[in-house]
């Protein structure tokens, strides 16, 4: 088994090595042709390595996965260090530090307060010690408290108070589809999506859909009898919505696949133009 694996790995390495050589030859007239040929071959290899996971877990996938984890973790670390710490924090902490890192000092009377998150950050790192690990809870408390307070009022506003007023809807339609009596309704009966029937039915569906959906999420009462039937209708409407959302996403996902296949066939294999 191990021998077979080695043979397959060697074969794949040879294949991609050959691909690199062929690309390098075709790009020999261009600047950095060899490097670019290597990078295109590498990108193609990594693409196929990830796709190979669809068959089963294998050494190529493991290679791509581990490489990606290491490279991406370091990438974000470098970005965070240079952009946030050196670019934004040091210029506010002290003039000496700013000069040392050749950043323009952002003078402000309140810059001293930026030492507080630095201290809290160091306290967070105390987790690594057995004795002072408890200190890491303080910065955590600051983060959780701040965002809990923020979320409490924000969501109460956007997901409750605003939604209440959005549900106030005229069941007999709004202009120009307002209900003007049964006779007028019959004589102007229109099945099109923009007609009065559709407008009125839609308002009813939205209103009762919301109510039944909310009943489904009611936890304090057993879902039986009429309440249970409303809850059942609620979950049906939820499922229809989830289905619609699922269907809506399919096209977008397929276009992603098309993008990768285009890379393989155009940029790497150069089969299509």
């Amino acid at each position: 088994m191990r021998r077979t694996t080695y043979i397959v790995v060697a074969g794949v390495v040879l294949l991609f090595g050959l691909s690199w050589v062929l690309h390098a030859v075709s790009m020999s007239g261009e600047a950095d042709g060899i490097e670019r040929a290597f990078m295109i071959t590498m990108a193609a290899f990594l693409t196929l390595a990830i796709y190979s996971f669809l068959y089963k877990d294998n050494p190529f996938y493991k290679f791509a996965e581990h490489l990606y984890v290491g490279v991406s973790a370091a990438y974000w670390m470098c970005q965070a260090f240079w952009s946030t710490i050196v670019g934004n924090l040091f210029p506010r902490l002290s003039e000496g530090l700013s000069n040392y890192f050749q950043q323009p000092y952002q003078a402000s009377g309140w810059n001293i307060t930026y030492w507080i998150p630095v201290i809290l950050g160091i306290m967070l790192l105390m987790r690594l010690t057995e004795k002072y690990g408890w200190m890491s809870r303080w910065p955590l408390a600051m983060i959780v408290g701040t965002t809990a307070g923020l979320n409490f009022v924000r969501y109460l506003r956007s997901d409750f108070v605003v939604q209440v007023s959005s549900t106030f809807m005229p069941l007999l339609g709004e202009d120009p589809h307002r209900w003007q009596g049964f006779g007028a309704f019959i004589s102007n009966l229109d099945l099109s999506a923009t007609g009065q029937l559709a407008a009125i039915v839609s308002n009813w569906v939205i209103f009762f859909g919301v109510i039944c959906g909310i009943i489904y999420f009611y936890f304090s009462k057993e879902h039986s009898g009429a309440f249970g039937r409303a809850s059942r209708l609620g979950i049906w409407i939820l499922m229809i919505t989830f289905g619609a959302s699922f269907g809506y996403t399919v096209m977008g996902r397929i276009s992603l696949l098309v993008g990768r296949i285009t890379f393989l066939f155009r940029d790497w294999l150069e089969i299509i133009s």
Partner: peptide, 17 residues
């Protein structure tokens, strides 16, 4: 997408909120 979806989304949003 415009009608039942809107109703269900609103119910879920209120619940999550």
């Amino acid at each position: 997408m415009n009608v039942p979806n809107l109703a269900a989304q609103r119910a879920i949003v209120i619940g999550i909120g």
